[in-house]
């Protein structure tokens, strides 16, 4: 009897939402924190030399110092602004052209071959031309980032539109949807999951390209901080800048993912077992 009772209790417990805060996300910290601690200990015990790879505590002290003088905030703001502008323009252009070339065959035949050819040029290769055309200041940097963001978004949106289930489109036809309704009520929601993924990979590329852009000669920004650390031989500064990139990239990606998750609750997707 008692075993029956305990069985019922445990299934009940499983069915009720747990009242404890969900701490599973902390699992993601085990690996990076563990590695950092190991390095810290290794240097402290003199097993390794911390000169070329400074310990996490030194990187942290450097970051804290930069934060205290207000330098860090200035660099972060400059970089964030470039990424935001470049991402915004890249997303806008990628969305419009991707949608047009996915929906309209003539447009696809006109623009797609050219864009596919351009896509294979490493964006860094444009840097000299961009500097020539748009100057050494902000414009050329934002455009370089926008170019990097543009391609994944263009590519996956046009591909996703072409991949929308014909059967669902036919339902729209039966109900005599206009072109606009077909786009807003069927194509847009159907392509949303792929679009969100492309936004996230576009954002990742945006963070990559901002470093390249700031290598082009910037007076502030995390990429500038990185180059500065290199030129003055301070690895701790380089690592501080890299750490800041990692944290900002992770936060912005998390923001994008959690905002978009609200629109995708309908998905009947694979949920791996715990």
């Amino acid at each position: 009897m008692s075993s029956v009772n305990s069985c019922a209790a445990s299934t009940l417990e499983a069915a009720l939402p747990s009242r404890r805060p969900n701490l599973k996300w902390l699992l993601g910290f085990i690996l990076p924190v563990g590695l950092a601690l190991a390095w810290e200990v290794a240097v402290a015990l003199k097993w390794a030399d911390g000169r070329l790879l400074p310990t996490p505590s030194r990187v942290f002290t450097t970051l804290a110092g930069l934060a205290r003088t207000g330098e860090l905030a200035a660099h972060v703001l400059a970089t964030l602004q470039r990424v935001a502008l470049g991402f915004g323009f890249g997303v806008a252009a990628g969305t419009v052209l991707g949608a047009v070339s996915g929906y309209w065959t003539l447009a696809r035949r006109l623009i797609d071959p050219m864009l596919q050819a351009l896509r294979n040029i490493p964006s860094i290769a444009w840097v000299p031309m961009f500097i020539l055309w748009f100057g050494i200041f902000e414009t050329s940097k934002v455009i370089l980032i926008a170019v990097g963001v543009f391609f994944p978004i263009y590519l996956s949106l046009s591909g996703a539109i072409l991949g929308v289930d014909r059967k669902l489109v036919e339902v729209g036809r039966i109900f005599r949807f206009s072109h606009r309704e077909m786009i807003t009520r069927i194509l847009l929601p159907a392509t949303l999951p792929a679009y969100v993924i492309s936004l996230r990979s576009g954002l990742g590329l945006g963070w990559m390209f901002v470093v390249a852009a700031e290598f082009m000669g910037a007076e502030e920004g995390l990429g500038f901080l990185l180059v500065d650390g290199q030129q003055t031989g301070r690895p701790a500064v380089i690592l501080a800048s890299i750490t800041a990139f990692a944290i900002l990239g992770k936060i912005t990606d998390w923001l994008l993912a959690s905002v978009s998750a609200r629109f995708l609750t309908w998905q009947d997707s694979f949920k791996p077992a715990e």
């Binding site: 059967k167 669902l168 036919e170 339902v171 309908w266």
Partner: peptide, 18 residues
């Protein structure tokens, strides 16, 4: 397609996002 003519397909073809 006309409003006076309705069609039920072999599959339900419901929009999963609605």
């Amino acid at each position: 397609p006309r409003p006076e003519i309705g069609l039920v397909f072999q599959e339900p073809r419901l929009m999963p996002w609605l």
